[in-house]
Design a protein around this nucleic acid. Structure first.
Length: 487
RNA sequence: GGGCCGUUAGCUCAGUCGGCAGAGCACUUGCCUUUUAAGCAAGGGGUCGAAGGUUCGAGUCCUUCACGGCUCACCA
């Protein structure tokens, strides 16, 4: 008989005794953490406590049983013995309770010989019967596929997993609090868009039946948020789930979370400052010393972030001034020398982009701002006043990954139209990630977008570097997996 | 999509040269009234990821497929 059948038999015994194995409310329990913290040796041994939780261990010991009960706040030992419980009740308890069951318990506290604060069970209630055994108690659940597919088991038996996801949630809470405190308004903009804009990426396509039209899942909320700035919401942000129809890796999931922030009458420098402040604010609340270990290297978040010009660090790491690569023959020689191949159209910006990613990005471990991106790579960013070939844009790199991206928003509708048209040419050359011409957005610009600083922070990756986790799947509760063969 | 590695009991894992399918935890039964990775004794539990092939004989060798991990490509 397999274990599920054994547990079903126990469930039937409960039902026969008139006990519903599921669904009884059990309100007003005390948190296990507080019970243990408040326990005093002089405590009245008659004082009854009420707890609810999951049975995580069951130690049968002579005519008594020790249990570990776990709730949201901690673990406590419970004890039931034949001589002080009703003997029939004691034996019934032993026969029907399994590891994994969720029980409500009442009874006084005492301390065992070995010093463990323990609740003596005087009254017990079945809240939910577990029909399947939990994974192994001290190796936990290790199989990575099963950890992701059955994340609830991973959370139950691998304590650091739960801690990490709690921290992720706290991070977002702190970021929101920081922005609320500074008068930013949180909004929601469309996930289903008739044109996927605001980033250079391949979208997912879906279909609206009633309208009989294709729609795209958003690759970014950017263009909608800037419409809101036009509409006088001058400090605005959105926590946005974005969808990109691209490869999956340890740093890419098809759906991921970005926090995008727009601040009117500011520029990219203000957004750099904001980025650094937000990250330091979050880190101070999560990491006692402001440091984390990333693949063996210590990252210090609390020292001032370094900043370098794109063109300077490119020259430093690639050994060639990127302007010289505008001669495509020269560019091809450099690619060949580095044995790097390109499967996008061979344009100056694609070559520069590729070389930057290959030679520079992975080396930026400590927080580093890179500023002054080429205009060709930044169709939505404002050109520099003193050199229109470059933009007032920055990206922040930590742990060799792009963590944030921000710029002074391009608010000139004529130049924006030209930029879209240049992207259209790339699209015609076969670049599926080139930005589409968004007439509706251009219309909004014609009503005047104030000078605005914009910023996007990748929440998943920021969580990774702060917690020192090198796979995005460790910070996404249910990362994308193929459907299993059969269940 | 390419390359490499993996898939054996509910979980964690062994399985040598191709020769009876294994251990620990979990489970069942018995003993044990302050244990805590409780202990002691006994027991049950397998479509060896799937399908085909080689062989007297396949968990083991070969082929194909599925799923996963790492990595390359793409991407944030």
């Amino acid at each position: 008989m397999d274990e599920k059948q054994q547990r079903l038999n126990k469930l039937n015994r409960l039902v026969q005794q008139g006990i519903d194995p599921y669904g009884h409310p059990f309100p007003d329990t005390e948190s296990i953490q507080h019970i243990k913290a408040d326990f005093s040796e002089k405590e009245n041994v008659e004082l009854v406590h009420k707890i609810g939780g999951r049975v995580m261990a069951f130690r049968d010991h002579g005519k008594s049983v020790f249990l570990d009960i776990v709730d949201e706040t901690g673990r406590i030992q419970a004890y039931i013995k034949e001589s002080t419980a009703n003997p029939d009740d004691y034996h019934f308890f032993k026969e029907v309770v399994d590891v994994g069951d969720i029980l409500g318990l009442k009874g006084p506290l005492f301390r065992t010989k070995r010093g463990e604060i323990t609740l003596e069970v005087k009254e017990w209630h079945f809240l939910a019967k577990a029909l399947l055994p939990l994974p192994e108690k001290w190796h936990g659940l290790k199989d990575i596929e099963q950890r992701y597919r059955y994340r609830y088991l991973d959370l139950l038996v691998n304590p650091t997993v739960k801690e990490n996801f709690v921290k992720r949630s706290k991070m977002l809470e702190h970021i929101r609090n920081y922005l609320y405190k500074n008068d930013f308004l949180e909004v929601e903009t469309p996930v289903l868009q008739s044109l996927a804009g605001g980033a250079l990426a391949k979208p997912f396509i879906t279909h609206h039946e009633a309208l009989d039209m294709d729609l795209y899942l958003r690759i970014a909320p950017e263009l909608y948020l800037k419409r809101l700035v036009v509409g006088s919401i001058y400090k605005v942000f959105e926590v946005s789930k974005n969808f990109r129809n691209e490869g999956i890796s340890t740093i890419h999931n098809p759906e991921f979370t970005m926090i995008e922030i727009y601040w009117a009458f500011q520029d990219y420098r203000a957004m750099m400052k904001l980025t650094e402040e937000i990250i330091k604010y979050v880190v101070k609340q999560l990491l006692p010393d402001g440091k984390t270990v990333w693949e063996g290297v210590t990252i210090d978040f609390l020292t001032p972030f370094t900043a370098m010009e794109f063109r300077d660090i490119f020259y430093q790491k690639v050994g060639t001034d990127m302007e010289e690569l505008r001669d495509l023959n020269q560019a091809k020689r450099v690619l060949k020398a580095e044995s790097i191949s390109l499967n996008r159209p061979l344009t100056w910006e694609n070559i520069v982009d590729k070389l930057f990613k290959e030679k520079v990005e992975s080396q930026l471990i400590n927080p580093t701002f890179i500023t002054g991106y080429p205009v060709e790579l930044s169709p939505l960013a404002k050109e520099r006043a003193d050199n229109p070939k470059y933009t007032d844009r920055f990206e922040l790199f930590i742990g060799g990954m792009e963590i944030a991206n921000g710029f002074t928003e391009l608010n000139d509708p004529f130049i924006q139209r030209d930029r879209f048209l240049a992207q259209l040419k790339n699209r015609e050359k076969g670049d599926v990630e080139a930005h589409q011409v968004d007439e509706d957005y251009l219309l909004a610009l014609e009503y005047a977008l104030p000078p605005t600083g914009g910023l996007g922070i990748g929440m998943d990756r920021l969580t990774m570097v702060i917690l020192g986790l090198n796979s995005i799947r460790e910070v996404i509760l249910f990362p994308h997996l193929r459907p299993p063969d059969k269940i």
